[in-house]
Design a protein around this nucleic acid. Sequence first.
DNA 1: TGTAAACTCCGGTGGAGAACCGGGATATAA
DNA 2: TTATATCCCGGTTCTCCACCGGAGTTTACA
Lengths: 145, 145
Amino acid sequence: MELSCKSEYALLALLELADRYSQSEPLQIRQIAALQSIPDRYLEQLLATLRRAGLVRSQRGAKGGYVLAREPWKITLLEVVESIEGTDSQQVETQRGVKSIEGMVIREAWQEAGQAADAVLQKYSLQDLTEQRNSRQQLDLMYYI
Amino acid sequence: MELSCKSEYALLALLELADRYSQSEPLQIRQIAALQSIPDRYLEQLLATLRRAGLVRSQRGAKGGYVLAREPWKITLLEVVESIEGTDSQQVETQRGVKSIEGMVIREAWQEAGQAADAVLQKYSLQDLTEQRNSRQQLDLMYYI
DNA sequence: TGTAAACTCCGGTGGAGAACCGGGATATAA
DNA sequence: TTATATCCCGGTTCTCCACCGGAGTTTACA
């Protein structure tokens, strides 16, 4: 399980949006980029992808920006990473038509491993992560005192 | 979970070696490459990596070749993929020194997903795969008759 | 002892994707 | 109308993957 820069940026941005979900005002790319130290022109691309995937909504023009398209507890990490990563669900397998039996057995093992990983990412929502972060922050504060 | 060409080639080669584990004669790169349709010069690199990882032993010179360093049931898929894949254990993380709490929470989720996938790959040995293949072949034969 | 057969080490290439940057077009609140 | 934001098009640099080739080294065997 490799956590790409892409996916991490997207998650960080979505977490910022999740924080401000109840507000009516949208968050701008620049603001998100500044808050999480993400190159803004790159983040722009990622947000466009997330918008096409239906995870965020955008408001163009002055006072525009982005808002979460759904409640933070209804967006799972799996959904985010599948949206942002190439997600051509049926891989480019079947590359040489006939694959050896060994190849099939190997792929089945990998499929099982992938499903196990996906199950973990599916059980966490954006909300879960923000809550984890909040309790972590509280803990830091206690140690500080 | 992406199954790279590299890992698949390595697995296919190791399965061939697992088949002939009881024999005393080593298998040559050319033979393995021909059996599994793997580019031989590329396979050579992969086998060198597997040798350095201690999974296979090589015999140089005429009548040389490769043999499994251990019994086929003592080599797990996880071990193979970790040997063959970049395994620069400490990734380029800690890239910007201080990472945000959000970043840590995200990474922990990914770690959990990775561990779930690893657990699957760890429970299968080369022996398991060859057995799966054998029963699959038998099944094919039954349908043929 | 010679030699051919094998591995070993070195480097290089082409293509793909990741991680960016920039310019201009478009939409919108004031 | 203008300032401000997203949208869309492209390009660049860098790394890694998959693969090839040559020169050197080791070793079984005649």
